[in-house]
Design a protein around this nucleic acid. Structure first.
Length: 454
DNA sequence: GAAGATGATTTAAT
DNA sequence: ATTAAATCATCTTC
């Protein structure tokens, strides 16, 4: 602005040579006292503006200088600014009004939660601790992994902050640059402060999309790190021997229906120091692998069957001592003990027809059915919970022992002997019953203890 | 290091 | 939601 008088003087001679009218107005500074003269004045100016593109470059340049120095320029600029404001900028403004970005908020929240964008210390370790807790592992030797995770997280954090700083610096520099440029240009074209402000906000928006990308990739990095850290498949640990034994004991003692109820699962989980879903996984895997290759599991099944049978003998001995001989259960108990004390071949001779009967059909018969037949043999209506559970599991166990010692060929053992234990001809374990209702019609939540404790 | 064992995940069916 | 079946990824054993 300070050079305008100089421009005015320098351009005077050249620029106004071919346009005496305008030159005259600009020189005398009055432009005519009457309104008619002013109109003519403005008309001339506009005419020249409109035809400026028809001029040669030199002429146009000169005309521009002349117009720049015109006393009416500020007023003209104001008018043009207003027009711009009312048309282009107002339309754009309406479009640009956006709600706060939900995606950005989510990213911010996540980064804060992961301890990347939060306070320097503590956040990361807290997140790592939470991650470790979420892993649900025994947590015996994950302190090394823990620190590894923390180190990697802080690395990500450092990169994030460095990049963020760079971004902010670049954003500020660019904004300043553009603002200076626009201020500079506002001398030669109509740019209002509002427009500059708007431009700055556009720049910030553009930069914030870059910032979002940074945040997004940081989040991705954290997620990958987290998944690596938490992915149980990568950090799989075999269950300890005791846990496996407890699970196997339950499995083989409920071979006819190895579907533990929710309560039983919880109980097993507690005893094995694993989660309920791990128990479910284990039973899922066990069932399918057992069914796929029964022969392979024979030895294991024998072992657990024998063990459970031995335990059951003890339990039942204690039980019959505890119970009064005159209770309605006594007959069942007696029969039950008889089963246990019978030599296997003798029992086999009794049970084989039952099994063969079952194998000829759809193998619906399970230990529950056998138990019912025992009841009917006895002639009593039996309601006792504890003894029922014992008989249930022991019948399973005995069936297994019997099937193993019954002298069947290996192939028969798989196709016939095991089938009665619940695996039906279709490959399913049982036809209809819901796991909990069949497994433990007489079992309470404490059945795991009674069945598997030793 | 290969092979088998094993816990977890995925997919589809119910 | 639970399960069977297939599959993955890791662990264990040899």
């Amino acid at each position: 602005m300070d050079d305008q008088p100089r421009l005015m003087h320098s351009s005077h001679g050249v620029g106004m040579a071919g346009h005496p009218g305008l030159a005259q107005h600009m020189q005398d500074g009055t432009g005519g006292a009457d309104g008619e003269g002013r109109k003519q004045d403005i008309g001339d100016i506009l005419q020249q503006i409109m035809t400026i593109t028809d001029q040669s470059l030199d002429e146009a340049q000169a005309r521009k200088h002349a117009l720049n120095c015109h006393r009416m320029k500020p007023a003209l600029f104001n008018v043009l600014c207003e027009i711009k404001e009312k048309t282009v900028l107002s339309i754009r403004g309406a479009q640009e009004e956006e709600p706060p970005d939900a995606q950005l908020m989510r990213l911010d929240n996540m980064l804060l939660a992961e301890g990347v964008s939060g306070p320097e210390k503590g956040g990361g370790s807290a997140a790592a601790a939470a991650a470790a807790a979420a892993a649900g592992g025994a947590g015996s030797d994950n302190s090394a992994e823990h620190s590894d995770y923390r180190a990697k997280l802080s690395q990500i954090r450092q990169i994030y902050h460095t990049e963020l700083e760079k971004y902010e610096q670049a954003c500020n520099e660019f904004t300043t640059h553009v603002m200076n440029l626009l201020r500079e240009q506002s001398r030669t074209r109509p740019i209002s402060p509002k427009e500059i402000e708007r431009m700055v906000s556009i720049i910030h928006r553009k930069f914030s999309s870059i910032q979002m990308q940074l945040k997004q990739s940081t989040c991705e990095a954290v997620m990958i790190l987290r998944s690596r850290f938490l992915d149980a498949r990568r950090k799989r640990r075999n269950f300890n021997k005791q846990a496996t034994e407890i699970l196997n004991e339950y499995f083989y003692s409920h071979l006819s229906n190895p579907y533990p109820s929710e309560e039983a699962k919880e109980e097993l989980a507690k005893k094995c120091s694993i989660t309920v879903s791990q128990v479910s996984n284990w039973f899922g895997n066990k069932r399918i692998r057992y069914k796929k290759n029964i022969g392979k599991f024979q030895e294991e099944a024998n072992m657990y069957a024998a063990r459970t049978a031995a335990n059951a003998t003890n339990v039942s001995t204690h039980g019959s001592q505890a119970n009064s001989p005159s209770t309605p259960n006594s007959a069942v108990l007696l029969l039950h003990d008889c089963f246990l004390s019978l030599s296997i071949p003798v029992f086999l001779s009794l049970s084989r027809p039952l099994f063969l009967l079952g194998s000829a059909g759809s193998f619906n018969m399970n230990s529950g059915d056998l138990f019912m037949s025992v009841q009917s043999l006895n002639g009593d209506s039996y309601q006792g919970a504890q003894v029922g559970a014992n008989v249930q599991s022991q019948v399973d166990t005995l069936r297994h022992v019997i099937s193993q010692t019954g002298g069947y060929s290996e192939s028969l053992a798989a196709s016939q002997i095991y089938s009665p234990q619940g695996i039906n001809a279709n490959g399913g374990w049982q036809d209809a019953p819901t796991p909990s209702s069949v497994t433990s019609p007489t079992e309470g939540p404490g059945s795991v203890h009674s069945d598997t404790s030793n």
